[in-house]
């Protein structure tokens, strides 16, 4: 059985950290633990989880230097006292949220507390039972699953969604391919959506949500099936959108995402 520093270093190497850097990080982590006189496992938790966390932190933009804070833009989404009820069952009540351009908001909460319903209300796909919603006209929506046509290729999806947004097919395809490369994905010409892995299909979903350059992006757990690298790429993309003045609302259940966002809306227990 390997000790904590060795397991930590091995996981860093597995995640693609250069050997010298992995050794240095392992040494530094051991030293930090020694300062508290506790075992590293007690200070940092399981070695493999802490290694993943550290890699994500180091890979995020602004990790080396403090995050550049832009002046928030105009309000792009405003929820005041929003509630949703299905027959006699109340899903949530009194939800308030304001998101400006250049901000990221996270919606968190237990399973079934209405996170996805609230996002659909923000999109306009579901009507609220009460309260006021104001939002910008140009909105992109990325559902948790589905949302693609199984027999069409990625480029055909770009054409279809581009046509819906009034783009000519050639421009829609080139824009889609360009956006895909930002997620480290080159769409196969012949590969249909149903032949894609879950993570690749979610990348397609993300590109389709962004294709028409919306001011507000609504993302429902968009990283389902992403590997570690893609997950980091995803957050970098979120920061790029934010820095471009867009507003992003993301439904998540991963608590370590929350340090990256400007607002957290907790819908709580059901």
């Amino acid at each position: 059985m390997t000790d904590w520093p060795s397991a930590f270093e091995a996981e860093l190497l597995r995640l693609g950290v250069q050997p010298a850097r992995a050794r240095r990080l392992a040494d530094e982590t051991s030293l930090q633990a020694a300062e508290t006189a506790d075992a590293p496992g007690e200070v940092f938790g399981p070695a493999h989880l802490y290694a993943r966390h550290l890699v994500a932190e180091l890979s995020a933009p602004g990790a080396a230097s403090p995050r550049t804070k832009f002046e928030p833009g105009p309000i792009l989404l405003s929820l005041t006292g929003v509630s949703k009820r299905y027959r006699r069952q109340t899903v949530f009540t009194g939800v308030d949220l304001t998101v400006r351009g250049g901000e990221v908001a996270a919606i968190v909460g237990a399973n079934g507390c209405g996170k996805s319903t609230l996002l659909r209300i923000c999109a306009g796909l579901t009507r609220p039972s009460g309260g006021t919603v104001k939002r910008t006209r140009r909105v992109g929506f990325v559902p948790q699953d589905g949302g693609t046509a199984g027999w069409l290729t990625a480029e055909e999806h770009f054409t279809l969604f581009g046509a819906a947004a009034g783009m000519v097919p050639g421009r829609a395809r080139s824009t889609g391919v360009h956006l895909a490369t930002r997620l480290a994905w080159r769409p196969g010409r012949q590969q249909r959506a149903q032949q894609m892995s879950g993570g690749t299909r979610q990348k397609l979903n993300l590109v389709l949500g962004e294709l028409h350059a919306p001011d507000l992006l609504l993302l429902d757990e968009p990283y389902q099936g992403f590997d570690q690298g893609t997950y980091v790429d995803f957050w970098q993309q979120v920061f790029a959108w934010r820095d471009a003045g867009r507003a992003i609302v993301v439904v998540t259940h991963l608590l370590h995402d929350l340090q990256n966002v400007d607002h957290v809306l907790d819908l709580g227990e059901r």
């Binding site: 559902p143 389709l208 028409h212």
Partner: peptide, 19 residues
């Protein structure tokens, strides 16, 4: 039936129902 997942997104992107 196979298009049920795509249609709401197309609407949201700007496609009219008649199209």
């Amino acid at each position: 039936n196979a298009s049920r997942g795509v249609d709401p997104r197309l609407r949201l992107t700007g496609a009219p129902v008649i199209s």
